[in-house]
Design a protein around this nucleic acid. Structure first.
Lengths: 146, 146
DNA sequence: TATTGTTATACTCTATAACTATA
DNA sequence: TATAGTTATAGAGTATAACAATA
């Protein structure tokens, strides 16, 4: 066996380290929960955003979610192949994305799963503490984004 | 061009989403800063932890940092190949890891880089706010870890 | 039997560069 | 010229399973 399984002070004082470690844990937990609807985390995120903004384009979706265009393409393609997303010509180069009927059904299921997972994962924090964390993370995002 | 580049409320309310997005941004920023010493983020983390705990084994290192044994092996091997880590037989199967002379030099440089990066990245938060964030992240880690 | 370290392998997410077709 | 969408490709990081050697 091993004895000292505590983090050294130097590393334990780094906010970036904790950010990475918890983020990884959270994504793994959500990923596991989402296998029930056969969705990956990013796929679910896309469904959420498209549900809220029908008609959004692939590029805008990427900009808003912080995902590169080049990575959005196969993501959207996969969701369309499964009949969750519909695409309508907007102009010669843009496509307006929206949820299909089955897309809305899977979205409802995914949303329930995500909410249950969050309830569980963030349980040790109070509502107020969660809000503070979200606010700080938003601040870090907007002030560090290129 | 595009008009509505704001996040939908549904997604914007998810702490997990912000965690993932900011964590990715932070790791990218730190990764860029660390190219100056030709280290990846995880490699720097390993150097930090070994510096604080000379004699730690590969397995314990993985447990403490939240990295699987199987992924630690090539990580440690790379650092040893570059002469940053030294390995001493502990018993027939375990090895005690420690920094070499050059390892300590690169560690000093890496530490300066990491501290400068953090100063920059987390600048919009006060010291007190950073401490709160770290505390909450620690809580989430320990209560959700398998 | 359990643990250490290793190998092989696959998956998810991210990044860049280059291309086409439209605007 | 700039933007939308695509393709190809590479690099991080993570996960599992299986193995030999050792405890």
């Amino acid at each position: 066996m091993s004895q000292d399984l505590t983090l050294s002070t130097v590393v334990d004082e780094r906010p970036g380290f904790h950010l990475r470690r918890v983020s990884g844990l959270a994504m793994a937990a959500l990923g596991e929960a989402l296998v029930a609807v056969d969705l990956r985390v990013l796929e679910a995120t896309v469904l959420f955003e498209v549900a809220a903004k029908p008609g959004i384009t692939l590029s805008d979706l990427g900009r808003v979610l912080g995902i590169k265009r080049a990575n959005m393409t196969p993501l959207v393609a996969g969701l369309m192949a499964r009949g969750y997303l519909a695409s309508k010509r907007k102009d010669g180069r843009s496509q307006a994305l929206s949820l299909s009927k089955t897309g809305e059904q899977i979205y409802d299921k995914a949303r329930a799963i995500v909410e249950a997972y969050e309830q569980r994962f963030f349980a040790p924090l109070s509502e107020a503490e969660k809000q503070v964390m979200i606010r700080h993370l938003r601040t870090l995002w907007s002030s560090n984004q290129s």
